[in-house]
């Protein structure tokens, strides 16, 4: 991409020192005087660039270091190694001009004041981020329209449902029109239609403002809908950075071939042999089969299937991303 990156991360690392002690009273007494500690590397040597207008999915299992990375980039944590530059600022210097241009939305935390009407919280954000009256009015109107907040903003946050609150939360976090968005599990716990709404909104905000978005989510639907590019980290280390589809072809050694028979077929003795001849039969009934085959043998198996069986239709597909990711995390594929 020709533009200069908006987020630039170089060899970022974060090591926590945690106290460690054996169980028992004696060890406890000893630890009062002689504390043993252990280093936990939450993030190590992570580098990437993100350009304006990009929406990047940030994937990894729980404890992979996603949130730690986001917290470093939003200026909440100091790294123990490496550099980062966002919008020309070093995030952990906490320059107010930087804080005023980015936002961190955490699905499990809220910034809205619990007991006062949402609109009052917004007024407060207006003062905190020094938003001019004109900008505030215009942006608020837009956000209300996009997110359908009209009936919500006069209620206290605690009277809203989880989904409603999240919408209000997101609107509040965008009033100052940040140029960088860190979204940490923004759709967690929401129902499917609310998840979709939030997803559409993030896409629209990104399209309209050209803001860069970094998103973590356990819902692959979020990632598939929003992110062309994904960054995968595991055990604090960067595993993959690139195209979402590239991830699948890179990490999944298998493809799935689905066939439909032209006439109902009762597979008696054939099925046992089929596993040897074609590959792993994932599902089978008398109208069709699904076979999982190593990627390199896809063509050969397909032609064998066509030759051997009364096939009416044959499709070759990549396995679902979710499955691939799960496999990557489970086996910890080395790059």
């Amino acid at each position: 991409m020709p533009s200069t990156p908006i987020i630039s991360v170089e060899n970022l690392g974060k090591t926590y020192t945690v106290p460690e002690r054996e169980a028992g009273v004696k060890a406890a007494v000893v630890s009062l005087f002689n504390r043993k500690t252990r280093d936990v590397q939450a993030v190590r040597d992570v580098s990437f660039d993100i350009h304006p207008g990009e929406i990047v999915g940030f994937l990894g299992p729980n404890g992979a270091g996603k949130t730690t990375t986001m917290k470093m980039l939003s200026g909440l944590l100091h790294p123990t190694a490496g550099n980062a530059s966002v919008l020309g600022f070093t995030p952990w210097e906490r320059d107010r001009a930087y804080l005023g241009q980015m936002t961190l939305i955490m699905g499990q935390r809220n910034q809205l004041q619990w007991d006062i009407p949402v609109i009052d919280s917004y007024q407060l954000f207006k003062a905190i981020f020094r938003i001019s009256d004109a900008d505030y009015k215009q942006r608020l109107d837009e956000l209300i329209e996009w997110l359908e907040l009209q009936s919500l903003i006069n209620k206290p946050a605690r009277n809203l449902s989880l989904g409603e609150r999240m919408k209000c939360e997101i609107a509040g976090s965008l009033l100052h029109q940040p140029r960088v968005l860190y979204l940490d599990e923004p759709t967690i716990g929401l129902d499917i239609s609310m998840q979709r709404k939030i997803r559409e909104f993030v896409a629209e905000y990104n399209a309209r403002t050209g803001a860069a978005v970094m998103l973590t989510s356990h819902y692959m639907a979020d990632v598939e809908a929003l992110c062309e590019r994904v960054i995968v980290i595991h055990h604090g280390t960067l595993l993959y950075d690139g195209d979402l589809h590239g991830l699948v072809s890179r990490f999944s050694p298998f493809k799935t071939i689905a066939i439909e028979f032209s006439e109902p077929m009762v597979a008696n003795g054939q099925l046992a042999d089929a596993n040897d001849r074609y590959g792993e039969i994932v599902s089978a009934n008398d109208t069709g089969w699904e076979v999982r085959v190593p990627k390199s043998e896809t063509a050969a198996v397909a032609s064998r299937l066509l030759a051997d069986l009364p096939v009416a239709d044959l499709t070759i597909s990549e396995p679902p991303i979710e499955e691939v990711i799960e496999q990557v995390f489970a086996t910890g594929v080395e790059t």
């Binding site: 009273v25 406890a28 007494v29 630890s31 009062l32």
Partner: peptide, 8 residues
Amino acid sequence: GPIPRRFF
């Protein structure tokens, strides 16, 4: 928190 520390 750890019980011994609580005792302390």
